[in-house]
Design a binder for these strands. Structure first.
Length: 244
DNA sequence: GCGACAG
DNA sequence: ATCTTGTCGC
């Protein structure tokens, strides 16, 4: 598929101020409510993840429908900037879009490994990529970048627990807005081992509740949604090959 | 200066 | 994210 808005392509050569300005533009362009073409009964969903052998970024995309892998693709680029909290999409975005440009199928939805609206300027990786591609997207992060949990129930969170993430002082959004949800997609029964929740947020054209529901709905017995889990494994394979 | 900090 | 062995629990 193609990049619908080239002006939002992540350019690692921009200054930090320019990157942040672009993110504010992207956050403004993003739609944080349901605006999906009515999802088909069997939506085509892609999972996206990266691995970093040496100074390169390997982006892998796995497309699934009804639990079956339909297509896999990937792209490799050199990394030009370090990881900076809040600017992740400028480090990894080029290889992700390059991989999407080799994707032959037309997905209904993309699940990313990282934040969407849970971001200082409402423009996390999932939002940046979703807006550039104009593709409904969801951010699935394993840790919280910013924002705070609302009404956290007593831990450990049971499987199925969903806690709102609210904007706090670190986010350029009115305090108290719902940015996403902490979603406990998996949990052990006993109390000896504990699994942390996922932090799910809208990327583009999806509301926070729908984002949480979609992430949850695509889990198949593991903490991560299956398309992301497969993309993670695929990126890992490609990375280990690249290192040899 | 101190704390926070997706991947 | 990445560098890595053992170890705990079902």
């Amino acid at each position: 598929m193609e990049v619908v808005h080239p002006k939002f392509r992540p350019d690692p050569g921009l200054s930090r101020a320019e990157m942040e300005a672009l993110q504010r533009e992207i956050g403004h362009e993003a739609v944080f409510e349901d605006d999906l073409a009515p999802l088909p009964d069997s939506p085509l969903v892609v999972g996206v993840d990266q691995a970093f052998p040496d100074e390169q970024a390997v982006s892998a995309i796995v497309a699934m429908r009804d639990g079956e892998v339909i297509e896999r693709t990937s792209a490799v680029t050199d990394l030009s900037i370090p990881y900076i909290p809040g600017l992740l999409s400028f480090r990894e975005g080029e290889s992700i879009l390059a991989a999407f440009e080799t994707l032959e199928c037309e997905p209904d939805l993309a699940l990313f490994d990282g934040s969407g609206r849970i971001h200082y300027r409402e423009a996390g990786l999932a939002t940046h990529m979703g807006v550039a591609l104009d593709l409904p997207s969801v951010g699935v992060a394993k840790s919280l970048l910013c924002g705070r949990l609302s009404n956290p129930p007593e831990e450990p969170f049971a499987e199925g627990t969903r806690v709102p993430i609210l904007a706090n002082g670190r986010v350029e959004v009115e305090e108290g807005n719902v940015l996403g949800y902490a979603v406990q997609t998996r949990q052990y029964d006993g109390g000896s081992r504990y699994i942390n929740p996922l932090y799910v947020s809208p990327g583009h054209r999806v509301g926070p509740e729908t984002a949480a529901g979609l992430a949850e709905a695509h889990c198949a017995g593991y903490k991560l949604p299956e398309p992301i889990r497969r993309a993670d494994a695929y990126a890992g394979e490609l990375a280990s090959e690249a290192r040899q």
